[in-house]
Design a binder for these strands. Sequence first.
DNA 1: CCCTGATTCGC
DNA 2: GCGAATCAGG
Length: 201
Amino acid sequence: MSWTEERVELLKKMWSEGQSASQIAKALGGVTRNAVIGKVHRLGLSNRTGGAGAPPKPEPKPAEAPLTEAPKMEAPKAAAPVAEPEIEMEAPKPRETVTSVKIPVPAARKPIVPAGQPLPPQPSANEVSPEALATQREAEMKARRLTLMELTERTCKWPIGDPATDDFWFCGHPVQAGKPYCEAHVGVAFQPMSSRRDRRR
DNA sequence: CCCTGATTCGC
DNA sequence: GCGAATCAGG
């Protein structure tokens, strides 16, 4: 394979979108991530965005400014300290249900609510089918306890414990093809609407 | 171990 | 110009 214009275009596009070299290589086919990185450097578009350590920031791509003519336009943005919405990902937090079962979590741990008071809101599903919940416990007892860095596309990203304390890690079991969670957690994460009791707001 | 990008250097 | 090997790091 060679770097045809089309391929280079796709490379540029994907790179600017924050795609990783390996992802780009996969999309292009016939090249390795090394080849992609090498090309990226040769093209001189190394740092994707101003900040070097800036994390992949998907450009919303406002709109192609026609820009027929705009000689010296200074954008005197009077600094608008916009409050970041900070959207939370769909990350259901495993909830401890008071049952007779003992130590559902790996090693004996402090109560799961030690932190101060905040404790992030838990948006989604609370009512999980008993069996799914049981399976969930099993999985958590054997959790690999991965840290954020250790997560990959193939590790279960189900959070366990309290993010505000050290008692926090990710399941880490092999994910179920495509899904972000392992089989057990897919079970509690993706529930049919029907089985979800309507909570009267 | 999984992954990331950066750099080098023979081709 | 190309990209595998290597490096440095999360």
